[in-house]
Amino acid sequence: MKWFEYQMEVDQLHASDALKARLLAMQPDSQTSRDHSAPAQRGRAIRFPHWRRWAAGAAACAAVAVVGSQVLLGMGPAGAGISTMSMTAGGAASSTAAAYDAAAPEAAAYSLAENGLSARSAAGADSAVAGEKIIYTARLTLETKDYDAARAALEQALAAAGGWMENSSESPYDNRRSLSMTLRVPADSYEAFLAAAGETASVVNRSEQADDVTAQYTDVAGRIANLEGQRDRLRELQAGADTLADLLDIEAQLSDVQYQLESWQGQLDWYDDQIASCTVTVDLREVETYTPTGETFLERLGAAFAEGWQNFVLGLAAVAVALAGLWPVVLLVAAAAVAAALVLRRRRRR
């Protein structure tokens, strides 16, 4: 049996001449309506596959998912930054307002209350030294897109204020450099320096603290005065000492007093130094986009979107760098995958 038998059989089928005549007689829009029963449902008629629609839908879902995740990621750190900033801004505002008041007893009372120090009589009658002793400390967190310019501006502001740098640490990382400096600024130009530093870059966080150490200072000063009195008296005794035993005794006490005196004096000197030069810690970060400090929702939303995109790009860059670091492994894996694909294709084509 060959296929030609089949073909011959089929050849014998043909449309009858009557049918052809009927077909030719048919005119457009004038069909002889036959009583067909149209199928109630369309069966699985032959159609083009709908994979294009499916692919388009899947791509749309994927795009929405990617954008949504980026928005969420971008809003996360931005949201945290905003809340932190608002809290510290509130705290800093009150302490700043307190610290920057004129040197008045009321100000001392304010700062005392602010920093939780023990209450002290505003009259300051116990004070052996004039004025009050306050140690100012500040911490600035700055962000900048132009790292070099901001750093130069900071150094300039420091020099203008007559301050110096106690220590600094700088770390360069790819495109995100960061700098941390501990600066000492004379108390007179403290306010001016903080204002100038705030101008050099975008301020993310600014916290200030004012410690009133007048009580401790006067205590130490009193002890010193006391010890000095003892020393003077001992010296007088030393001058009028009769016996060697007394002399040695006096010498021993003198050296003890001297030792204590030096210790307390050292502490007083430390206080003086801290009061005279305020400590300002500055953290400068180089960023691509600023942490949103805007007030309006739209500002923050826009900034969050931008940061989300930046995070995404940085993530991709990090992945690319990592892959480049592993290029021999990547090469081997790619070669193995290509070989496997070729083998599979050959098997299928069989």
Binding site: A15, L19, R22, L23, M26, Q31
Partner: peptide, 14 residues
């Protein structure tokens, strides 16, 4: 079969 043929050609006309 002839019915089917006629249906096909009707569709061709349309």
């Amino acid at each position: 079969a002839e019915d089917v043929v006629q249906d096909v050609y009707e569709k061709l006309l349309r």
